[in-house]
Nucleic acid binder design. Structure first.
Lengths: 190, 190
DNA sequence: ATTAGGAAAGGACATTTGTCCCGAGTGAAA
DNA sequence: TTTCACTCGGGACAAATGTCCTTTCCTAAT
């Protein structure tokens, strides 16, 4: 559930060490709660998470939130926006203190045009995200809240993170009231 | 809603014409209703749609279906499975008679390792799919059925296709009963 | 023309989910 | 210690959705 990618992380560490122009990749930090990207705003950098955990979520016009995924070490953010040339699709918020490699857009764009290793890494990341996002969308639409919650709790138990009730509800796309009910009903069934 | 990609189509036409080994890319046809890929089975080819419209959908264990997207000319299918080395994520079914370029997996894999143009095309397709899938998942979770149906009808009116009630319901992830109700209630409001 | 079979729409009820609100519990300040 | 204010969990009702079943309509065969 918290995605990570050690290959991409070491690829970028390598790139960082050997870069010619020292301003192409810089290390930045965000304290817990700060946003790396804000939905609908234009991004000035692409980032790769060096340490910490973030959440990637939509804020809809009706003020409800939907968490797409949790991103940890080695996950890249902002690249879709550059590739498609659009403003930020969603928000990325630091759930813990976070440090990132921030890559300038022109530099990243030039790498895209020449570095096949980077292309392959990105394709793998994208394929993984498509698999996750689409199969989750299907599951959430076609199963009961209780089932999707059970799945979430199981995923969470395999990870090291604490997810607040708000975030659980936002991940499932339901209200806190419904989440409480589902939690209670899962309790009963064991 | 019916995705298409003329750049990818002409890229593949070019490739097809100039291929060395005549068995790397072949043209195949599927009549309406036939499946190009079956969920959980292993794919033997990657395909790019030359003509016709397909639907890409999950069948869950509870027998309900969820349509991820409709794919038309120039859309590629089966590539995610090769990149991630997994069995078919979902079903791809011909909604009209369909012809495709069927590409052998080893050939495609070798192209991936060397052809940056292909990599860039794929990255754009993937980025587009992630944008669509994730924003639709969010919208469907956080808005009422009526809103999502209205959006679907609007999208459909801009396209040339007819979508059956079953397919509309599967696209929205709801039952036909609920779809009928929502249709009726939309009627009333104008 | 009549009737049987099947598909589709919608009524009726059950279940699920959301909204609103109240009361218990907690922490901080007087 | 008392009280105020705030948060959180859950009760009660409303709205939405699913399930089941009946009715209607269409088609095809006799």
């Amino acid at each position: 559930m918290v995605r990570t990618n050690k290959f991409f992380l070491s690829y970028l560490e390598q790139l960082y060490k050997t870069q010619q122009r020292k301003e192409d990749i810089i290390v930045k930090s965000f304290t817990k709660g700060k946003r790396l990207f804000v939905q609908n705003e234009n991004a000035s950098k692409i980032m790769l998470i060096k340490d910490g955990i973030t959440k990637c979520f939509f804020t809809e016009d009706n003020d409800k939130e939907y968490i797409v995924e949790f991103l940890g070490k080695g996950e890249i953010v902002g690249e879709i926006e550059v590739i498609r040339n659009i403003p930020c699709l969603c928000n990325i918020e630091a759930m813990t203190d976070v440090t990132v490699y921030a890559i300038s857009i022109p530099y990243f764009a030039s790498l895209l045009k020449q570095d096949i290793g980077l292309n392959n890494l990105l394709l793998e990341v994208f394929a993984e995200r498509i698999v996750n996002t689409s199969s989750r969308a299907s599951y959430q639409q076609l199963y009961t809240t209780e089932c999707t919650l059970a799945k979430l709790l199981e995923l969470q138990s395999k990870q090291e993170i604490e997810i607040s009730r708000e975030d659980k509800a936002a991940y499932l796309g339901i209200t806190i009231r419904s989440l409480n009910r589902a939690l209670k009903s899962l309790d009963k069934s064991r």
